[in-house]
């Protein structure tokens, strides 16, 4: 079993609260693929870019602490939320490239007996799957091909922008203007990936509270673009995008004056369907827009 892929999983907060189906389906898919995920239960919230607006240094210390626990396990860290990925990767990048800043952060971490070393990688599970497990191997595990579905990939900003940061963290090169990984993954599961303009656009989640109209328009435009291009469902690697596309779908479409209904799957929910996981294992009952595909 020496070649078994093992990762430290930073779940983020959403997967433990408003999108329990994300954690559930991630674990189900990992089990099917014989990937071991060690949950980082010590980890705190990444700050979601909002703590960063308030107290940059505190956010660096907290994110560095999260990485410390993956370093203790000596395991590469994977994330299942684009915004967790952004903030964790950004912390790593800043500490790895600025010895003075790292010393300041470590001074605080020493108070709780930790030290940030910069020894582990930080990648979104999507990229770990593609780079380490491989799409060909994944294709060989498909028992229920998604060939009857037109699937609209929604990448989510914080996995593709800023591209310099992400291309440093990942082995491949994803263009923020023409991302392909999620579409390649859909094709590997034998689904038909939908070509539409909004796949790499913003859903507006981060201004949900202070600017709901902005957020609703951006989300509504993305859903309707996928819908108008004959998508049967959307899929996203980000639970924050998912909250907007799924939970807020009705409000978003109302804002842009359109009627539609489009199921939205989390990335591991879609993979799980192709691997033959049951709807229960994938938590499909938690999706607000009913997933009536199976």
């Amino acid at each position: 079993m020496s070649n078994r892929l093992t990762y430290a999983l930073y779940t983020g907060c959403t997967a433990r609260e408003s999108t329990p189906e994300l954690l559930k389906s991630t674990l189900a898919v990992a089990k099917k693929l014989d990937i071991e995920l060690v949950l980082l239960d010590e980890a705190s919230c990444c700050g979601a870019s909002h703590l960063q607006d308030f107290d940059d240094f505190l956010s660096l210390v907290l994110n560095a602490r999260n990485i410390c626990y993956a370093e203790r396990l000596d395991l590469p860290m994977v994330t299942i939320c684009n915004t967790c990925q952004l903030n964790t990767a950004m912390t790593k990048e800043r500490l790895d490239s600025d010895p003075k800043l790292r010393a300041r952060v470590n001074e605080a971490l020493e108070e709780v007996g930790l030290v940030y070393k910069g020894t582990v990688s930080v990648r979104h599970f999507l990229y770990a799957l593609i780079e380490d497990y491989g799409l060909e191997r994944l294709r060989s595990k498909v028992v229920k091909p998604l060939s009857q579905f037109n699937i609209a990939a929604f990448y989510g900003c914080h996995n593709i922008r800023p591209s310099q940061l992400h291309n440093k963290m990942n082995k491949g090169e994803e263009s923020p203007y023409r991302p392909t990984t999620l579409d390649d993954l859909i094709e590997a599961l034998e689904g038909n990936s939908v070509d539409y303009d909004h796949k790499n656009r913003c859903c507006g989640f981060h201004v949900d509270l202070q600017a709901p109209t902005t957020s609703n328009i951006l989300t509504g435009n993305a859903i309707i673009d996928a819908y108008d291009n004959s998508a049967d469902f959307m899929v996203t690697p980000c639970p924050l995008c998912h909250l907007n596309l799924d939970v807020k779908q009705e409000a978003a479409l109302k804002t842009i004056n359109r009627e539609a209904r489009l199921p939205v799957l989390h990335l591991p929910q879609m993979i799980g369907l192709a691997l033959g996981c049951s709807p229960e294992e994938l938590g499909l009952n938690h999706n607000v827009v009913p997933v009536d595909l199976v």
């Binding site: 914080h158 800023p162 913003c202 981060h206 201004v207 202070q210 951006l218």
Partner: peptide, 12 residues
């Protein structure tokens, strides 16, 4: 600045 959606399109 509070209406910024943090999409990083500007940085790209």
């Amino acid at each position: 600045v509070w209406d910024c959606v943090k999409c990083f399109e500007c940085a790209e």
